[in-house]
Design a protein around this nucleic acid. Sequence first.
DNA 1: ACCTATGATTGCAC
DNA 2: GTGCAATCATAGGT
Length: 343
Amino acid sequence: MDDQTRMMTGLTGLGGLQQADVGDPDSVRKQQSLGQPQQDIGDILQQIMAITDESLDEAQARKHALNCHRMKPALFSVLCEIKEKTVLSIRGVQEEDPPDPQIMRLDNMLLAEGVSGPEKGGGSAAAAAAAAAAGGSPTDSSIEHSDYRAKLAQIRQIYHSELEKYEQACSEFTNHVMNLLREQSRTRPISPKEIERMVAIIHRKFSSIQMQLKQSTCEAVMILRSRFLDARRKRRNFNKQATEVLNEYFYSHLSNPYPSEEAKEELAKKCGITVSQVSNWFGNKRIRYKKNIGKFQEEANLYAVKTAVDAANVSAQASQANSPATPNSGGYPAPCYTPDGRL
DNA sequence: ACCTATGATTGCAC
DNA sequence: GTGCAATCATAGGT
């Protein structure tokens, strides 16, 4: 700014352009012979334009010459005035950027997945929860879990190193541009506001690159997750003995086929599966039985007989009288069977 | 290759 | 949190 005010005071010196020591003998000759201010300004402008076509050394020399020129302050102030006017029109275009919802979504997701934010918790916790829900043998889930964690850590590491690289590049580039503009502000009018705007533009550009990084990181996490979930979906049928144990419980508790937490734990232990798998099994069984009782009739009869026989054996062993097989008071409909086990 | 059975997941209601 | 209902995806049988 002080540059500009200084230049304004020099505006009165337009007349003294006769001796233009700008290093071009041709123009000097022309200026000297013509001696007209208008022509002089034209020449100087032409020289300024010609700088871009010259070698660096030549240009430096010419720049220095221009900087030392008596007319420089005057021209500078004129440029300042013009600039002031154009800045007004630019100001309308300039908009303060609101927080991008897209980038906020990505940030939230990366935070939730444990990619950004603190090292512990987040993703590993999510993986642990997922692994816990997965069921299956504990070894399997722990292998999947650690695999998932390792992959997530890899993504996390790449993300952070890339982000750091971008941030470094951004600050380096910003510094470079700012230095360049400061340097240039000696020869052309550049207000701090303009520098600020340029910095903002650079930051916007880099943040759009960052958004791409965030986007691709999110994609990678989603793919990893879906693979992990797919792995969980890979199921194996329970072994025959486990199914038998579960069916026995189900049909002997047909009036109320809702095992308690303790019962579930016991069944899980007996069958070599998790409690949640027991819950899943009962959930599936109840709904499928209810939907098509006819289809399960045979199975129901089979297990009813089995239970009855077992009970009879137990009671015989205990030298006791007959035992009730299935107390059925208003739960799921009991199968129709004769005491000897036939339909 | 197709069909059925079955374990797992998801969305919803309570 | 639990159970229901619908659905997905795979295992296993033909």
